[in-house]
């Protein structure tokens, strides 16, 4: 009996797969549910067990810099370019995009529904001084939001007190927005998959400025010799394949398509 228990104990710790790799991905990508579709197929087709570390873009880049993951899949072009420039990845490869949407209280006090552009929508929020939740966590979504305020010629530091940086993940931030009846910028996938939409509605979307490009960056094996460059390469080859394109383009929630495959071969 005890021997059996010990054996089970050891077995539990030592579940071994032929090949594993660690991929840091953003919360928004994971929340979309797409990884649940892709990972089993990857395992079946190329025998690769991908271990996802679901973190913000800032932390994903940190993990890559430290060499704690084999590759990263994030959506913040400026930060990715810096990452490549510093030599932590040999290149960045664009895989797909989805888009950001503006979420807010269903009664829409800032009249976002009539906005003509993303810039116009943000100006309406600022003019109404309506509560706005910012991720405030250096994530890709947070960086996108800052870029958009900038494009609208608005100064975030001057917003106080209706602008609230919560320093949390997408889901937690949406929970906060729901509780406070606040506006928030979210990626479409996280919004569609979010389970606690009470009082919130999608109020503005569609401006190309809101597109959200995902890119794959293998960690530079010259900087970190222990990273598994071969499997990172194998995963990249699969991600840009026709198979991946079909799965990514075909993924939808409640009949809404979430991602557009745009990798160049």
């Amino acid at each position: 009996m005890i021997r059996l228990a010990v054996l089970m104990w050891l077995a539990l710790g030592g579940v071994a797969f032929a090949e594993t790799m660690r991929l840091a991905v953003t919360t928004s990508f994971h929340n979309s549910g797409l990884s649940d579709v892709l990972l089993p197929v990857i395992k079946a087709e190329i025998g690769l067990e991908v271990q996802l570390l679901v973190v913000g873009t800032g932390q994903a880049l940190r993990l890559g810099r430290a060499g704690d993951v084999d590759a990263i899949l994030v959506h913040s072009k400026a930060a990715e370019d810096a990452f490549v420039a510093e030599g932590f990845a040999p290149y960045r490869r664009e895989i797909m995009y989805n888009d950001f949407v503006l979420i807010g209280p269903a009664h829409d006090p800032a009249q976002l529904a009539q906005a003509t552009s993303a810039r116009d929508a943000l100006k309406r929020i600022a003019a109404a001084k309506a509560p706005f939740i910012s991720r405030g966590d250096e994530s890709g979504t947070h960086k996108k939001e800052l870029v958009l305020w900038d494009a609208a010629a608005l100064e975030v530091s001057a917003f106080d007190p209706w602008y609230k940086a919560v320093g949390a993940g997408m889901g937690a931030s949406l929970n906060t927005a729901s509780a406070m009846g606040a506006y928030i910028l979210a990626d479409r996938a996280s919004w569609l998959n979010f389970g606690n939409k009470t009082g919130l509605a999608l109020l503005y979307a569609g401006d190309p400025a809101l597109f959200n490009q995902y890119a794959y960056l293998p960690v530079n094996a010259v900087k970190h010799p222990h990273v598994n460059a071969a499997v990172a390469q194998a995963l990249e080859a699969w991600l840009v394949s026709q198979n991946a394109a079909d799965l990514i383009n075909g993924y939808s929630i409640n009949g809404e398509r979430l991602f557009s495959f745009n990798a160049q071969n």
Binding site: G169, M170, L174, N175, N193, G195
Partner: peptide
């Protein structure tokens, strides 16, 4: 923590 983040409170 993960499910809370996804808003799946149940």
């Amino acid at each position: 923590a993960l499910e809370t983040g996804k808003g799946d409170f149940a």
